[in-house]
Design a protein around this nucleic acid. Structure first.
Lengths: 139, 139
DNA sequence: AATTTGTGCTTGCACTTTGCAAGTACTAAT
DNA sequence: ATTAGTACTTGCAAAGTGCAAGCACAAATT
């Protein structure tokens, strides 16, 4: 756990995921079906390997992610969201909506359009899907 | 403008405010009626002066804040939100709600309780108040 | 007029984090 | 045995951060 700057819930949250990379990893798991180290590495933003390892460890320590051995390939790890991690969905959606609204270089794609048309509906639908996949502890 | 890592709206947003300090400054203006350099410095998280100057300049360059000479004291500057800045409110609220839900050390205060009871209502109410204060350009 | 106070901002330096390239250890497949 | 895949580590340069100390200017005080 990182050191706490104050007892403000915004400040406490930013102590955990207030950086340029953590929420992109969450996005990959949440919205892009990515589950493994090598898949995160392939994302277009090109995270460095040492940063990725560090962020995965922090997010696991914070109980936002759970790391398990893959059933298909025992030399591989699979990351999934806890309920605490899945509850970051509204934050991710709001950030996506704001980014799409104010950045010409970020065209809305399928999910972006859905959010623009019916934000609450999109969140509810995605939230239900995430709930099915939530991990409470290792299998 | 910082360099863009990808055309993902989440990534683009994090390029702008994905750090430990920017959203705390936004919070201070948005929810705590703070408007000046010296008031931001006094916040409990104790931002360093060089970081504060840098973040204010970035947020101003991104047209999230507007910097104006104070009418009361002409040697003082006053920062206020643009509509783009005010539209960060839902992100701030969601981060606050998540932080309060999952952090024992962050007790919900007045606004936190209001959000827990009626998030949409709280956002709408605050949004209306912010709209009155939004600056489009210097006075 | 000289001094003090308030405000915004800069500088220097130590420290930490990040980005990049390369390499290690282990497993699985061929 | 060799090759490929996966997760992770290391070394090092560059960038960002935290802290203390200052500067420049305006307003208020004496």
């Amino acid at each position: 756990m990182e050191k706490m700057r104050s007892d403000c819930p915004i400040s406490c949250s930013l102590d955990v995921f207030g950086d340029k990379w953590s929420l992109l990893i969450i996005r990959d798991i949440m919205l892009r079906e990515k589950v493994s180290y090598s898949e995160f590495l392939q994302s277009e933003e090109k995270i460095a390997t040492n940063i990725l390892v560090n962020r995965l460890n922090v997010l696991e320590a914070e109980k936002i992610l759970i790391k398990e051995v893959s059933e298909k390939n025992k030399s591989k790890f699979v990351y999934s969201l806890t309920q605490k991690g899945a509850d970051l969905l509204p934050i991710i959606i709001e950030i996506m909506d704001w980014g799409a609204k104010y950045n010409e270089n970020c065209p809305r794609k399928e999910l972006g359009k859905k959010i623009k048309a019916d934000k609450a509906g999109a969140i509810e639908e995605l939230s239900k899907e995430l709930k099915k996949k939530v991990r409470k502890k290792a299998i």
